[in-house]
Amino acid sequence: MTAPIRLALVGIGKIARDQHVPAIAANPDITLVACVSRSGETVDDLPSVPDLAALAASGIDVDAVALCTPPQVRYSAAAEAIANGWHVFLEKPPGATLAEVAALADAADAAGISLFASWHSRYAPGVAPARDWLAARTIGRVTITWREDVRVWHPGQAWIWEAGGFGVFDPGINALSIATHILPCPFLIERAVLDFPANRDAPIAARVDFRDTAGAPVAMDLDWRQEGPQSWDIVVETDQGTLRLAKGGAELTFPDGSTPMSHEGLHGEYPGLYARFAEIVQAGTSDVDVAPLRHVADAFLRGRRVTVEAFDE
């Protein structure tokens, strides 16, 4: 495909408006042609339809869709899009289960459709240089601290507390998407403790211990009850000093104290995602890495559930 990819945005919520829309507008290889929203939301007065069936019947020429829906309904929407011959951009996490994503990958492959499991945190500016630096080092210990205030970042989002909504692993999977990308050896879960509020079906906090295949411990601390300064940090102790990624990968500090880049917010992450999506569509390939989702699934499989006080906004 050489002409701009005609894309429909499915689910017009905060992340779609704040990140997807400007990233699409800045990419000459992609043109936003429609919105899909049950409530009729739209962008820039573009046509809006309530569902994918209506989009298929609308006569609007569409090549691809970007799914910004909750993970519990992402599989059915993606499967319908693939059946319609549309390439699919999946917001993270790519599905509610590993089996769903595997089925989508098989369906996309059979249909010759490009499927993209997007992990926006991998496109933070500090991640690629951190990966390059760590490739030649021996890892001693990794500490992941991802603590934020759910009232600030997910106000009123009831779905995130439901079964399949991931709870604190919704941001925690961002940390895992970075760790699985930058660490030179795979890591495996050893134990986990998951804190479930008495009135919720998803955890508000988790402590997870992994160990990589070379023997280095990887400890992850997730908590949605953080007030004040928020923490999105990965510290990697190596045989040649300690590397630090802060602000979700936006700030990288090498062992000598040098900080080659420091940005606020999701600097360049979604433009990077859409550049990658255009690349795979034009090449006729897919990019579906389930490693971060697999670790979340393992945490639920191996984790000890602890009931904590009820959480209300």
Rank of each mutant, 00 (worst) to 15 (best):
W153C: 07
A23Q: 05
A198F: 03
A246M: 13
A163R: 15
A198Y: 03
A110H: 14
A135W: 01
R302P: 02
R147L: 12
A107S: 12
K92V: 04
V288C: 12
A192H: 00
I5H: 05
A202K: 02
H263V: 12
G257Y: 00
A77S: 12
A202H: 02
P93L: 09
S114Q: 07
V235M: 02
P93Y: 06
G265S: 03
V193A: 11
V49W: 11
I234G: 04
A34S: 03
A105E: 11
S121G: 02
P184H: 01
N174M: 06
I30T: 03
P184Q: 01
P28I: 11
A250G: 14
T138Q: 14
Q230L: 05
A214G: 08
D209C: 09
T143A: 10
G85F: 15
R141M: 10
P50E: 07
T69I: 13
A64M: 08
A205Q: 06
F187K: 05
R294A: 13
T97G: 07
V290N: 07
V152I: 14
T97W: 13
L266W: 14
A275E: 12
T69M: 09
F254Y: 15
A108C: 12
D51T: 04
M261K: 07
E269S: 10
L46A: 01
G248F: 03
I5L: 12
E237I: 04
E162I: 04
Y270W: 12
D201V: 08
L90C: 09
G11W: 09
L67M: 09
K92H: 11
P125L: 13
G215C: 10
M261W: 06
A53F: 10
S76M: 09
G172I: 05
G248P: 03
A297P: 07
T69P: 04
A202M: 07
A297N: 07
F166T: 00
I139V: 15
A78S: 12
W146N: 01
V290D: 07
A179V: 08
Q226P: 02
R122A: 02
W232H: 13
Q19F: 15
S262W: 04
A3Y: 04
R17F: 09
